[in-house]
Design a protein around this nucleic acid. Structure first.
Lengths: 257, 257
DNA sequence: CGGCGAATTGATTTTTTTCAAGCTGGGTGG
DNA sequence: CCACCCAGCTTGAAAAAAATCAATTCGCCG
């Protein structure tokens, strides 16, 4: 099943870089994929969607994230991924990745780390969805995204952070309606905790934002860890990077269904 | 950091089997662990808990599950695990597991598969928590647990399945109160879909139960996959099994905090 | 026969959704 | 330069979903 190619260089294992415009699908729920994707730039989000259109955003994927992972034996993805901004993707055939993982133990460990990290994040999100109030959920998400962008904590008071998410998207991530997210953001602003306007978050009182989110600081180290993979044999190169960007049209550029 | 021991046999890598009684903690949130645990028998559940006691159950772990996994670089668990029934555990020092994974590629792949599978399950749970109604959530959980116990789908009408969960536990898993779970179970019974009494689920109308859960059948293959790991070099042994059970008292028997 | 955790049920309150109606500000084309 | 367009945001009022509070009841076990 696996090709036995010897990829002395990671570059040899990948396909040409692709570009997915904001709003396009990187892949769709129930797609069968032959490749995995490494985000080189841009934001995307994983989601599941029910027959009647209700949608749950599962995870925000930032540069360095690996997309298209599914337990062996499942031929279809249980989620889809949509590009939130323009996205550049490194495409790696699954079979090649399997070979790479066997040849490069530290890549194997990095791959595993990414999966474990995403699972830990998913657990935190579940707690938000199931047990946090709307205000706590909104504060928690703002804090998570801010920390993941800044890769640091605590955040400076007054810091202005670009988060490319609409209130509707926040609602789908938090299990709330966009209307309720809006009202909740207003409360946070009125209380002088944080302000979110025009996809920019202003931290007003970082301490109180953390308290409002009902999150303990130990949990936050997940948010500040580096996502990028440093290629095994290249000296500090970009994450599985490449030099031949090539554009693709909207839609699910690679999905086989 | 790693011992360079060569574990020609998996048995050599593990510590003595331990027993955790129902209600005991296998480990607690924020514990630092030196070992991972493989469930040999019994049910446990992963949970997170907030300062004020609100609790979210993240995952039901059945025999074959691997517990104590955390992304490298995090020294404390972001969740705890409580034994739902009496549980027997195979204990493997983390360092030994790392060696085993390097020596046995198929064990490495099995380990990865377990993590990926749990992540996929977590995504399904997130969709329940965020976007399904109470009735859908309850139906979805009953169906999931039933399929995971029976390892088959569809389920026979009239099948009576033992599920060691209370309504309070179901509530904590579903982001609902126990009272609301109770009312919802009554509705399901009145509608002739399924009946849950005294920790036994009776499937009345499997078709309608699936429909009520708003779940597509493709998603359900995750529930019927085998959890157990077959040791690499032992001919069809029990999952990382052993022969020297030894009891432990209640509480967090191994946690180092 | 208690004792007790778990389940059940009703009444009430809180939270969140739904529906409906504007508003705002950046971008576009004339 | 201006009119208008439109996605995203904002606000209000009413309805629905779920939580909370408060008793009981049930079944098992000692």
């Amino acid at each position: 099943m696996l090709s036995l190619a010897d990829f002395s260089d990671l570059e040899a294992a990948r396909l040409p870089i692709i570009h997915v415009p904001a709003g396009g699908n990187i892949y769709c729920q129930a797609d069968r994929l032959n490749d995995v994707f490494n985000i080189l730039s841009g934001w995307a989000y994983l989601y599941q969607i029910l027959e009647d259109g209700r949608r749950q955003i599962l995870h925000f994927a930032l540069p360095g994230s690996l997309l298209g992972i599914e337990p062996a034996g499942h031929n279809h993805m249980n989620h889809g991924v949509e590009a939130q901004t323009d996205v550049l993707l490194c495409v790696i055939p699954r079979a090649n990745l399997a070979v790479l993982r066997e040849q490069h133990p530290d890549l194997n460990n990095r791959y595993l780390w990414l999966v474990e990290r995403d699972e830990a994040l998913a657990y935190d999100h579940m707690t938000s969805l199931g047990r946090r109030t709307a205000k706590e959920r909104v504060a928690h998400l703002l804090l998570e995204l801010a920390c993941r962008v800044r890769k640091t904590f605590p955040l400076a008071a007054g810091d202005l952070i670009e988060l490319p998410v609409t209130q509707a998207v926040m609602g789908d991530a938090l299990g709330l309606t966009a209307v309720h997210v809006n009202r909740t953001l207003r409360v946070l602003k009125d209380e002088g905790v944080a302000e979110f306007r025009r996809q920019k978050l202003r931290i007003i009182d970082a301490k109180r934002l953390t308290a409002t989110a009902s999150v303990s600081e130990e949990m936050m180290s997940l948010w500040t860890a580096a996502d990028e993979h440093r290629p095994v044999h290249s000296p500090k190169g970009q994450p599985l990077n490449a030099s031949l960007p090539r554009t693709r049209s909207r839609g699910s550029p690679l999905s086989g269904r």
